[in-house]
Amino acid sequence: MEILSKITPAETLLLIRGNSVKLKDLMKYTFTDLLSKKVISIRKTSTKASVKDKELSTYTYVEEGENFSRYKPKTHEIAFLQMFIVSPSISLNIKDFVQLALKAARSNWNYKKQIRNSKDISFYFRESFWSNLFGQIKLTEKGKMIKQRLLAYLDGIDERLKHLNESDKQSLIETLLPLGGNVFLLNNFDVKILKDIDRDVFKNSTFNTTRQDTSGLFYDFLFLDLFLDFDDFEDTFKSFGDNFDAFDSSFDSGDSSSDSGCSGCGGCGGCS
C-alpha cells in the first residue's frame, strides 16, 4: 500500500483514529519514526550523577542522527528537531528532550492540526470553522475510504504476523520494510522478529536499495541497526513514554518547579 511508505505513523494514526488518538501516541510514534530514519540518535553513557556518588548512573541522550542534515522534516516533526536546528551538535538528556518536544507541540489540538495540515494527507480532512473551534477531526469521503483501506491492510499484516512461520519471514520482511515507522502501529509486530533473522537476509532483500521517501531523505536501510540493538530500543521507547507522562501530568496540574533547599544561598545543600 503505497501511501504507507509516504506518511509518518502520526499521520496514519490521525487518519485511522481521528479524534480519539492521544497526543502521547502521536508523539511517541513520531519519536520512534525519527529514530528509525536516523534523523535523531540515542547515546547512553554511564557516569556519576554527582562527585560524591559511589555508583554510576545511566544517562540517555538524544542527538542528531546521521541523516539529520539532509532530512526535510514535516511540520509535526519540528517539535523534536528544533533544538538541533538552533544549536547544531547539542546533546539533550531524554528527560529534557521530551519536555521540550511537549512544549513545542503546545497542545493536543495544535499538534493534531500540524499533522492534519501535512501536504500528504490534508486532502483527506474536512476543515471548517466549527471543526477548528471545537477541535474536531473530520474526514472527507475520500478520507473515510483511505481509513478503511488502511485499517484493512494493517489488520491483514497483523493477521499474518500472528501466524508467522519460518518460511514466511522473508516475504513478510519485504512487506514490512516499506511501511517505515508505521510498522510500530501493528499490534502483533515485535522487533524480535527482525532481530532473529540473519543480517544476510536483509542484505538479499529486494528492498535493500537506496530509496527516497517523501521527505527527501535517502537512506539505505530502515531499522536495521535499531533492531539489532533491540534491548536499548525497548528501554528508550519506554523511557520516552515515562518522561512524557511525568511532564504531561505536571502540565495539566499547573505545577511549577520549586526548590526545597535553604533560602539563604538559593538552595544550597550545605557544605562538607
Binding site: 557516569t47 550523577a49 554527582s50 548512573s57 544517562y59 538528556n93 528527560k95 518547579s257 520549586s258 526548590d259 526545597s260 533547599g261 538552595g267
Partner: peptide, 9 residues
C-alpha cells in the same frame, strides 16, 4: 553533565 538525574531540582 551538569544535571544530576536524581535531583528533582
Amino acid at each position: 553533565e551538569l544535571d544530576d538525574i536524581h535531583a528533582s531540582f
